[in-house]
Amino acid sequence: MSAAVEMQPYVDPRDRGGAAQPMLIARELQRHFRVKGAGTGAVVRAVDGVSFTLFKGETLGVVGESGCGKSTLARLLLHLVVPDSGELVFDGDAVGERGGVNVADLRRQVQMVFQDSYSSLNPRMPVQDSIAFGPMVNGRSKTEARRIAHEILVKVGLRPDLFGPRYPHELSGGQKQRVNIARALAVGPRMVILDEAVSALDKSVEAQVLNLLRQLKRTLNLTYLFISHDLNVVRYISDRVLVMYLGQVVELGPAAEVFARARHPYTRALLGSRLSMDAGRRIEAPPLVGDPPSPIDPPSGCRFRTRCPHAESVCEARMPTLGHWEDRSSHVAACHMTRPDSGHSLAGSA
């Protein structure tokens, strides 16, 4: 991927800080939701102090189980959900603050592709109108928007004359997801958030869409935030990986390193739960027991300690911190075992 960027020294006119300046920096993002009917003051800690950097031209994979807050995180980045606190910096400008970039400008540069479902496209609209909608609300004329829609349909591998006039129910799952991608690209974004974008697809179709995403990223110079629960897919498409558990980042680092030498016990358990596709190498004992706890009332200290095989008293007493996460190459984990001075008996071994 990085090689492709070097071969094409194309610079987006909207690029302000150059290649070295991160596309996006999230600092201590937090969003809690009040729960109805679950007692007074009960809150879901959907995203609880999440920090990371997204560099230009890279793909950052976000993995985690249901309820870990990865979808809320995606919506926070687009201000579809407004964060309670924390800071979001897009290409050097603070988002939604005076002197920074406003939300409308942000949304022209960052787009989102949702999971393919019955609700991802307006059922009453031909798909070419769904795609043209974005350019139209951004001031293009109707014919111009239609022309853009047709160009993008070609880019995602659908013939505009055949597929443009169709309604969503006349498309297969893979075709619909191509349209969803086309809709996101029609606005001309620099960064695309893919929220479980291939999860609902059949495997043979998933492969087609993954190939397409990689190809589009190369030709359009895009930056991806790729959210998925499928570790194999994340491993394949990501340059760096961020692992979430109950609203917090537990591990962040280059994909190859995280998958080869995971530092957080939760990441190791996730990797150990991957099915092998080889009947001769079956998993005999589950790496973890029980379900992830509810994000409404997470455990004190380290949130993973209730399921962690190495939990000690220090894990209950203090919440581990992530460490220095700002660099492209840093591989960090929020675990006491990674800190020599944490007081954990296995400290420094991970």
Binding site: E65, I283, D291
Partner: peptide
């Protein structure tokens, strides 16, 4: 189910 639950 989630991956860690699926294998169980």
């Amino acid at each position: 189910l989630d991956a860690t639950v699926q294998i169980q």
